[in-house]
């Protein structure tokens, strides 16, 4: 009986250890914080060149935006970062963004990840965690 319990405990520990490893797998697949920072650089250049959404950033401090977005994606991907920016809801309040705006941003982010060579499957693992933010970002 004790032996079975011990085995179960070992099994449980193994499972939790492997899930802890799996949790930052995406962070590593995106190239760590440096990789994410490069993606954010490219994506931000795309945002600012995109006639559909560039006006959204008219009053944005882009350096701070890039730092915040990098930290946020790092956290979302399971990395050891701290996001110091506003909540998604507060950050987008009053911007009247549409679903089309949100998707335009996704397309620009995808293009950024393409440029860095992030595989489509890995891109989708990140986008799957970002997609629900649609509810806080789209206010129109």
């Amino acid at each position: 009986m004790l032996r079975k319990l011990a085995l179960a405990a070992v099994a449980a520990l193994t499972i939790s250890a492997s899930s802890a490893l799996a949790d930052d797998a995406l962070f590593h697949d995106l190239g760590g914080r440096d990789g994410i920072a490069t993606i954010v650089d490219d994506a931000t250049a795309n945002f600012l060149a995109d006639p559909r959404i560039k006006a959204t950033f008219d009053n944005t401090n882009m350096d701070r935006f890039k730092t915040n977005l990098t930290d946020q994606l790092c956290v979302v991907a399971g990395g050891p970062c701290v996001y110091k920016g506003q909540s998604m809801h507060d950050a987008h309040k009053g911007l009247h963004l549409t679903n089309a705006d949100f998707n335009a941003l996704v397309e620009d982010l995808q293009a950024g990840m393409d440029k860095v060579g992030v595989s489509f499957a890995t891109q989708n693992r990140l986008l799957a965690r970002l997609a629900p933010m649609n509810r806080d970002v789209v206010t129109k």
Partner: peptide
Amino acid sequence: DAPQPASSGSVIDQGMSMFDDGKL
């Protein structure tokens, strides 16, 4: 053809802006 911002121009422009092409 990167979609243009909705124009406040002609009725045709306004009509075409309904086709927002916004889904992925």
